[in-house]
Each structure stands twice: as structure tokens, then as C-alpha cells.
Design a protein around this nucleic acid. Structure first.
Lengths: 249, 249
DNA sequence: TTAATAGTGTCTATAAGACATTATATG
DNA sequence: CATATAATGTCTTATAGACACTATTAA
């Protein structure tokens, strides 16, 4: 189907630089964390030495579509082949990259940290998990990646209120308490145990395995995500914003 | 801050074509409608004569950022300067445009149809509102615009379940019954009057005006959106999916 | 037995669904 | 008065929050 090139006003316009970036979330201990890579400091490299979201240019020869490009970069950095991946949005303007007008298509991924073997990529001389503490208070990031990260955190927090998304931060098998801790790490506030368990079990999103995790106390049942349940929507939010201002989520 | 051009592997990659497209929703009578434009049939024009979402190439000289580009195109087609506008997502691959690997950044807008004066744009020889009936069953659209439209309708329907978005389909002043009809047009199912009114009024999203709309019956109070309330989130969905499968929204 | 965490039950509050009832305009 | 639509009230149901209580393991 692809025909020639030269046609219509298309080529008459200067083409923006086009990249795909990733916001990769994991749980480090009890805190929500994001994978950042350090920018190289070769000649002409923008933002040398700063930390940035992993990503890079689309390779129109190799990348079938935007999502395939995101998957490729994800695999390169983490070795993980099939995490939860969702498009976050795109950012483009004339100032975010000193090399010219550029637009980036951003995806966000959720994965268990323990399944990851970090790999320094082409441009990255280092890669590390950084805690996403109180949302802000990060170090200075390259490009406009801080605002993209903020948007990603906001999206994840918002969806944690009414979906099963945080489950993808855990390994394949987990206890309900571990799942609750994952939610709490994302939402940033303790949840009520009984309500949490009722909600999760009623949503038919997890299924019990035959195994338990023991300690010096009553062992906890291990659960896994039901297959095909990448994302399940709950009928209500946690904590319906009380008093007056219920607005602005 | 923008410096020179030639640096880093950036220019070593072929740059995809980059466009911005719009899904513009309005209410025609009682049915949710979308604004489409007809593709020109000049030499080299892809999909000549087919209907398409309004949009086009980014002009890196004029467009400060992606949203400004969307606003510019919106203004060109409809004359409307400040509708509700939100980014929908981006689509990019090597097959959607015969002129080469292309990516489009898509925004969706909500506006009252009566405020619109349609203007045929540069590439468009015609522009018209089309009813978004049962979701599918459209005519064949140019590019991959059918799947983009489907995604936009899904997003709008989803958000109508728990936000105030459909209010932007109405003129500045409206009755609560008209607002309910707007929701019903979007969601595609009748809502219960009492519950609807309680929800809307409790959400503090509209305020009464001093005016009413009369007929040969009890006149209805006119309301307007409270300023600053572009989008308000309700604490629950309509119709929590009943029986078993509550999942997959 | 104690300590610790897993898991359940009870009660209340909130908001939606269903549906009936009252209110207010025109003719 | 009749008619039509606006607006409100009542009753039930589903689920979240708070918090108490029971269950099961190791040591």
C-alpha cells in the first residue's frame, strides 16, 4: 500500500522530530518508583548527564507502529517483554528539545521490579529506579520529562482509585495484603482492609492459587490476576471526596 | 534556547510525517454527532473524496505546541475559539498514510452545534455533522480515522458515566432536562430523572440563572456551568454494571 | 501460651434505581 | 378544568468506611 514519497503539501512542511518515551513504574519496597536513565555526554547530546525517561527516536524501518516502538525500547531497557502498557499522551512544542521542534509519544508501563534486569541502553550510561515520593521534589530531569512524569503519576493515581491497575506492580503471585500495600503506595494513603478485600474479591479480578505464604503467623493465601483481566473497573472510587469540593480529581 | 540543527543521531533517523487531527462532537437534535470534512481530490491527495476528521500537518513556524495547533485547526473549521478540548491520544504507523510513516496527535472537542459556522478548509471541499449512531455503521473514512473516531466515542461515553463532560455539548444556558438528554445521547440509554438531578446538583457543577424556559406547561429553570468547572468528577458511575461481569468498561 | 498477621462480621453512611407524588405553567 | 412537563419525595439496594472480632500459624 505505501506508494512513493513526493505528493501533496506534506513534504512542504518541516517535519518535527518524533520520539517515543516511557514512564516505567515499579514498586521498590513500599514506594512507587520510576525507571530513569542517565543521558550520555557525547558531542551534541542534549541535557548531558541528566536523568531522563527512557526513550528515543522512532525507527521507521523497524517499528511497525508507535506501540511496537515503545515495546522495543522497553525490552531494551528492562528485558521485560509483556508488562502492562498503556498510552499516556503526547507532548510537542518548539522548545522541549534544543535540536528543534519535537513531539514525543509517551507510554506508561507497570511491572514488578524483581523481574527486571536493568540494561544501559545506547544513549544511557546508567539506569536506576527512583522513588516517586510526594509527587514533586525530583531531581532536575532532561527535556520536559518532569511534567510528563507528573502526568503519568497523576494518571496512575487516578486510575488506582477505580481500577485494578496497581496489581501489575506485583509479581505473578501475591497476597491480598501485598496488593493493598501496592494500592497504598500508589494512592499515598492507607486503605481500610475489609473494604479493600471486599472490593477486590467482588470485582472478580484475582483468583486464589493453592499456595500460601507463611511467616511466624497465619499464612496468607496467594492470588494471581485472572487471565484476560488486564484492567478491571470498580463501580466506585475509594473515598468519595468528602465534605464540599468533590470536584477536580 | 533553540540552537542549531545538526547534532546527535537525531537527523540520522527518517522523520515521520506529523499531523494533528480533531474529533469534534456536537449534539444535532437528540443525537451525538461528529464533524467530518471531505478530502480534496487534487493530484497526490490521499483518499480523495472520502470523509475524514479535520486536521492536518503541524506548522512548526506557527504552532507553539500541539494543543495550539489543534486550536488553530478548530478555529479554522468552526470559528469556535474556546470549546472543551482534551487530548485523546496518538496513532502512528507505516500504513495509515500512503505518503509514508506518519503519526497523528488527536484531540477531541465538545461544543454546541448552534455556535458553529462551518467553514470549508484548505484541503476540505466540504464539512458536515454526522450522527454517531450505534457507534459503528459509519461510512468509510479516510486514513485510520474510523478507529480513531471509535476511540473518541468510547472515551466520551466512558467519561459521561462519571464526569460533567456532556454539559459542553449544550449552549451556555440549559435546563436540567436538556442536560439529561445530552447525557442520554452520549451514553445511549435513558437515565432516571430523580437520580440524575440529585447527582448533578450535589456535584456543584451548575448554577441556576434567574431565567426560565417556558412552554405550555410548568417552565424549567435555566442553569449554566459554574465557571472553572470544565470537568467535575462524580463519586460513582451511572448504573454500576450489574449481575456478574462488572469488568471491561 | 503469646505474638503476629490473615481474614470476617456488623453497623453506618452515601448515593443510585425505581417509581410515585406534588408543583406550575398554558389553554 | 385538563394537560404537560418540572421538580421533589420515599423506599430499596449496593458498596465504602470504621472498627471489632475470630482464625491460624510459628515459636
Amino acid at each position: 500500500m505505501p506508494r512513493a514519497r513526493p505528493q501533496e503539501p506534506a513534504p512542504a512542511f518541516e517535519r518535527p522530530l518524533t520520539t517515543v518515551d516511557l514512564v516505567i513504574f515499579g514498586l521498590a519496597g513500599d514506594s512507587l518508583s520510576v525507571l530513569l536513565v542517565r543521558r550520555g555526554d557525547g558531542p551534541g547530546e542534549p541535557f548531558p548527564g541528566l536523568w531522563a525517561l527512557p526513550g528515543g527516536f522512532i525507527d521507521v524501518e523497524r517499528d511497525r507502529d508507535l506501540e511496537a516502538c515503545a515495546m522495543r525500547k522497553l525490552k531494551e531497557k528492562t528485558g521485560v517483554a509483556s508488562p502492562y502498557l498503556e498510552q499516556l499522551g503526547s507532548w510537542g512544542d518548539g522548545r522541549r528539545d534544543p535540536r528543534g521542534w519535537s513531539a514525543t509519544h509517551v507510554y506508561f508501563a507497570l511491572m514488578p521490579i524483581d523481574g527486571v534486569t536493568l540494561r544501559a541502553g545506547a544513549n544511557a550510561v546508567d539506569a536506576r529506579w527512583f522513588s516517586v515520593a510526594g509527587n514533586g521534589a525530583q531531581k532536575k530531569l532532561a527535556f520536559d520529562h518532569q511534567r510528563i512524569l507528573d502526568a503519568a503519576v497523576a494518571r496512575l493515581r487516578g486510575k488506582a482509585d477505580y481500577t485494578s491497575l496497581p496489581a501489575h506492580l506485583l509479581p505473578k503471585e501475591f497476597t491480598l495484603t501485598e496488593l493493598q500495600r501496592a494500592y497504598e503506595a500508589v494512592i499515598g494513603r492507607p486503605l481500610e482492609k475489609s473494604a479493600f478485600r471486599t472490593r477486590v474479591l467482588a470485582a472478580d479480578v484475582v483468583e486464589p492459587t493453592s499456595r500460601v505464604r507463611g511467616g511466624s503467623n497465619r499464612p496468607a493465601r496467594l492470588y494471581r490476576l485472572k487471565s484476560g483481566k488486564d484492567i478491571v473497573y470498580f463501580p466506585r472510587n475509594f473515598e468519595p471526596r468528602k465534605s464540599d469540593g468533590r470536584s477536580e480529581r
